[in-house]
Nucleic acid binder design. Structure first.
Lengths: 242, 242
DNA sequence: AGGGGGTGTGTCGCATGTTACATGATAGGC
DNA sequence: GCCTATCATGTAACATGCGACACACCCCCT
């Protein structure tokens, strides 16, 4: 002992690495349209533009390749692959499969939610809807789903859903606007929150299910329209989702 | 044109990279016990042992770290983290959530199974059980689940389950022996196969559900006993799975 | 005798050099 | 005028160099 114990932070031993920052930069680039899907890029040039060496850039891109967001082609470069309607439908199916049981578990474990985080977030959503603050609304929406997953206490589920979110953020960002009213989305969340808070597992699952299906339908229809592939959204839905 | 077209193979352009081979080597090392979980290793030494440079080793380990199988500690090394009872329970929960709907989809899409792969694999399982050939049996078991996932036609689900398998293979490899008869496991699969082949979605889901729950229970109980943590398997099950 | 600081070793993270390959342009034979 | 071989260019995959940092050990000072 030397001194009264300074009670400092564990001092994030995790100095943010260049790889992580590159990862975010690439995500941002995709989101803002700087990186065009389908186009061929090279680690060399990207590293140069970001002002770092090739190693962290390569590491970051390999991580994205792991989840299918980018695609490496040996001796040629890499491409950003954004999910088409089929991929989107698959992701929706996964979300339904995982988040509905998660909602049930959340209702079951509601006692763990010490500080009523769920209600807090929902109220923030209400507030954002009232102010027509769409970015904020989207953000709180994500957060709400995140809180429910946390309550379900399954880190693998959290991880999978996180990566899916990563892949869909680009697709879904501009979808709500125009096609659905913020309030419509809001009221869908209410029964979920109520059921979870009441500890009613069955109802929580049911509410989550209807919510995901509704938004899924909209997302899918929108994606099909946008990409102009010959896909029929109903047929896709029928084939991949119950 | 020069010659009658020799009709050669497309010659897999995908030269197996050192990273991939390292990946397999590490998996193998974990499986065979050469790499001890919890122990501290270094990329340097591992690269030297494998006779390659640090880059592909690092790439491979980063990929494993992505899925949580190994854990990097800055300036110290990396550890192999094998899943404990809690993690195992989480994985079982994910498998139930994803594979039960997948079985339903598979029954729905059974028309796509042109060559009766499902029946072929099941018969191979029967054969292996008859011969008491456990490794073969395990292998065909995996394959059977794989075929069902393929029929469900959702690549994301396939990917997630694949990584889970990767993480659980070590845990589950020695479990069956002694605790369950091969035939007992076999007969659990029969109703699944029958239902899928008959196109009975509801029954396929039900059968898959009971199968996964039964084996999950056994796996979990075994893991708890083996690790000697104070966990209660029933409590874990109750908390993470329905 | 005990504690504190210096030092040596080992590690990751990042930078940079090297190699083999894919592709498009170009020159040369028929 | 076509077809082919050669070459120039650009790339990922792999090898290696380097600095900062964590930790263990040991010596020295109190």
């Amino acid at each position: 002992m030397t001194v009264p114990t300074p009670a400092l932070q564990p001092l994030d031993t995790r100095r943010v690495t260049l790889t992580d920052r590159t990862l975010n930069a690439v995500r941002e680039g995709i989101r803002t349209g700087t990186l065009i899907p389908g186009e061929l890029y090279s680690v060399y040039r990207l590293a140069e533009e970001l002002g770092v060496s090739r190693s962290p850039v390569r590491d970051a891109l390999l991580r994205l390749a792991e989840t299918g967001i980018v695609n490496f082609e040996r001796n040629k470069g890499f491409r950003v692959v954004l999910p088409g309607p089929k991929e989107l439908a698959e992701m929706i199916a996964v979300r339904i499969s995982l988040e509905v049981p998660a909602a049930r578990r959340a209702a079951h474990n509601i006692g763990l939610d010490k500080e009523n985080k769920l209600r807090t977030v929902y109220e923030a959503m209400e507030e954002a809807a009232k102010n027509r603050d769409e970015p904020k609304f989207m953000d709180e929406d994500q957060k709400l789903h995140g809180v429910i997953l946390k309550l379900a206490a399954n880190s693998y589920v959290e991880r999978v859903i996180d990566t899916l979110r990563d892949a869909t953020r680009l697709v879904g960002s501009s979808t709500i606007k125009g096609s659905r009213d913020l309030n419509a989305v809001l009221v869908e969340h209410r029964p979920i929150v109520e059921a979870v808070l009441a500890g009613d597992a069955v109802e929580a699952g049911r509410a989550m299910d209807t919510h995901l299906r509704k938004t899924g339908r909209v997302l899918l229809a929108d994606a099909v329209k946008r990409t102009e592939t010959g896909h029929d959204p109903n047929e896709l839905w029928e084939r991949l989702i119950d």
